[in-house]
Design a protein around this nucleic acid. Structure first.
Length: 420
DNA sequence: AATCCACAGGAAGTCTCGGTTA
DNA sequence: TAACCGAGACTTCCTGTGGATT
C-alpha cells in the first residue's frame, strides 16, 4: 500500500476519501432487511395471526400449517421471518428445540434441491454425523438423511417456503405435510409456512396437500399510502440529516400506492431519487428527483433484466424489436413471424449461436412474458387453421430494447453487417 | 358436414454437465 | 476409478383446437 504507482493516481484519493453527501446508512433501504418489531408497520394483525398458528410449536407441539397470500412487497416474508425468529428465540429459552429454515423457491425450484437446502440449513454435522453433499445422491437418500436430522436435533421445525408457486412440482409439500403420518418422523413435528403471491396457486394443489395446508390461510392486503409513508419515515435514517425535503417521502408513497401498494417499489423509488440527487451533485433530494426516479426505476429494472440474459434470449427479443421497428402500425406479432426474423438473425455468423427450433424459441418467449419483459395475448387465428395463436409485444419502447441489446458487442457487430 | 390447416403446448427421449459415492 | 444422480437445454412427436375451405 502507498507506493509509487499509486502516487500518480493521487487525485483519486480525494475521491475515495470523500463523504457521501446524501446517504448515511443506505442499507436501511434494502427491502430484505428485517426490522425490529417496532419498525414493522401496519401488519399487527397479520403478525398476530401467523404467531397464533405456530404458537403450539414453542411448546413442542405440532404447529399449524399456514398459507400466506399477498402481492409483492406486502410484507409476507418479513412477517414470516420475524414471527418464526421470535418463536425460535422464545423456544430456546424455554427448552424446546425449534428448527427454522427459509427457502426461496425462485432460487430453489426442484424438489431435490429444496430437500438438500433444508437438510443443509438444519444440519449440525458435528452432532449428527450426517453429511449432506451438495449433489450426487438420489432424492430418497436426501430425504432419509433429512428426516433423521430432524429427529435427532429438533422437537419441532418450521419451514418457510417463499414464492412457493415457483416450484416445479408440489411433491415436496406432499412429503413435508405428511411426514408425521407416513411414519418418516418419530418425534419431530414439522410446520410449513407457505408464501405465494398468486391466489390461483391453490388450484394447482393436490386435494390431500390442500386439506393439510389450508389449515390457516391469510391474505395480506397491500399497504396504503399512509403505511408506506410510515415505512419510509422509519427508514429515513438511510439519508443524512436534512437531506430529504419534506415532500419527497409523501410523493414516493403516493407513487408506490398507485402501483399496488408495493413497499419494495416505494423503497426503490426513494433510493433512486437519492442516487439521482447524488449524481447531480445536489445537496438535497427534491420532488423532481422522485419523479425522475420513478421513470428510471422502470427502465432500470428492464435493462437489468435483459442485460443478464443469455444470447439466445436476446436474439429472440431482438427479433421482436426489429419487427416492431419495421411495422410501426403494429405492436403484436405471432410466434411464426418472430421465428422467421429470429432465424435470419441467428443465421448471421457474427452472433455465433445455433438456430433453435420454433418449439424451443416459443418457450423462451414465454419465459420472457413471465419475467415481464414481453407481453402476450392469445387470439383466435384468422386465415387457414389455428385455434389460438399467441401474439407477443414489447413492454418497453423498441428503441430502449435495442439500445440495451446493442450493449452486447456481438449484437452491435450484427448491426454493422446489416447496414453495409 | 366433413376436411383441412397451422399453431400451442404436453410428453418423452437424448445429451451434457457438475457432482458424489463406494 | 466406474457407476450413479439430478437438472437443464434441446429435439421430435403428438394431440387438441376451431375457423376456413370444400
Amino acid at each position: 500500500m502507498g507506493n509509487d504507482s499509486e502516487r500518480e493516481n493521487g487525485s483519486l484519493d480525494d475521491f475515495w476519501g470523500s463523504e457521501d453527501p446524501i446517504f448515511d446508512r443506505k442499507e436501511l433501504l434494502d427491502i430484505d432487511l428485517v426490522p425490529t418489531e417496532d419498525r414493522i408497520i401496519g401488519r399487527d394483525s397479520e403478525i398476530e395471526s401467523v404467531a397464533s398458528s405456530i404458537h403450539p410449536a414453542v411448546k413442542g407441539q405440532s404447529p399449524r400449517n399456514t398459507l400466506i397470500y399477498g402481492k409483492t412487497g406486502t410484507g409476507k416474508s418479513l412477517v414470516a421471518k420475524h414471527v418464526t425468529r421470535s418463536a425460535q428465540n422464545y423456544s430456546l429459552d424455554n427448552g424446546t428445540k425449534m428448527g427454522r429454515a427459509y427457502i426461496d423457491c425462485t432460487q430453489t425450484k426442484t424438489e431435490t434441491r429444496v430437500v438438500i437446502n433444508l437438510a443443509r440449513a438444519l444440519n449440525e454435522p458435528e452432532e449428527t454425523g450426517i453429511s449432506i453433499p451438495v449433489t450426487g445422491l438420489s432424492t430418497d437418500v436426501y430425504y432419509e438423511r433429512f428426516w433423521s436430522i430432524l429427529d435427532q436435533l429438533y422437537d419441532v421445525a418450521i419451514i418457510i417456503l417463499d414464492e412457493i408457486d415457483k416450484l416445479q412440482n408440489n411433491e415436496i409439500l406432499m412429503q413435508l405435510s405428511r411426514a408425521g403420518e407416513a411414519g418418516k418422523l418419530d418425534s419431530c413435528k414439522v410446520g410449513i409456512i407457505a408464501i405465494s403471491n398468486k391466489i390461483s396457486f391453490k388450484e394447482s394443489l393436490d386435494e390431500r396437500i390442500l386439506s393439510s395446508l389450508q389449515d390457516r390461510e391469510f391474505v395480506f392486503p397491500p399497504y396504503d399510502a399512509n403505511q408506506l409513508r410510515e415505512i419510509m419515515y422509519n427508514r429515513e435514517d438511510a439519508f443524512k440529516d436534512g437531506v430529504l425535503s419534506d415532500d419527497v417521502i409523501p410523493l414516493s408513497a403516493a407513487f408506490a400506492a398507485q402501483e399496488h401498494g408495493d413497499a419494495r417499489k416505494a423503497l426503490d423509488i426513494l433510493r433512486n431519487a437519492g442516487e439521482l440527487a447524488k449524481d447531480e451533485g445536489a445537496q438535497r433530494v427534491v420532488e423532481d428527483h422522485v419523479r425522475n426516479a420513478r421513470e428510471k426505476a422502470n427502465i432500470d429494472r428492464f435493462s437489468q433484466l435483459l442485460e443478464g440474459q443469455p444470447t439466445q434470449i436476446k436474439a429472440t427479443v431482438y427479433a421482436l424489436s426489429v419487427l416492431a421497428d419495421r411495422h410501426s402500425d403494429r405492436e403484436e406479432f405471432a410466434t411464426r413471424e418472430i421465428y422467421e426474423m429470429y432465424k435470419t438473425i441467428t443465421a448471421d455468423s457474427a452472433l455465433g449461436i445455433e438456430t433453435l427450433s420454433q418449439r424451443r424459441m416459443s418457450d423462451k418467449l414465454d419465459e420472457q412474458v413471465f419475467l415481464d419483459i414481453l407481453g402476450r395475448v392469445e387470439r383466435v387465428g384468422r386465415g387457414y387453421g389455428s385455434g389460438v395463436t399467441n401474439y407477443y409485444y414489447l413492454l418497453e419502447d423498441p428503441s430502449v430494447v435495442q439500445a440495451v441489446i446493442h450493449d452486447d458487442s456481438r449484437f452491435s457487430e450484427l448491426e454493422k453487417h446489416r447496414s453495409e
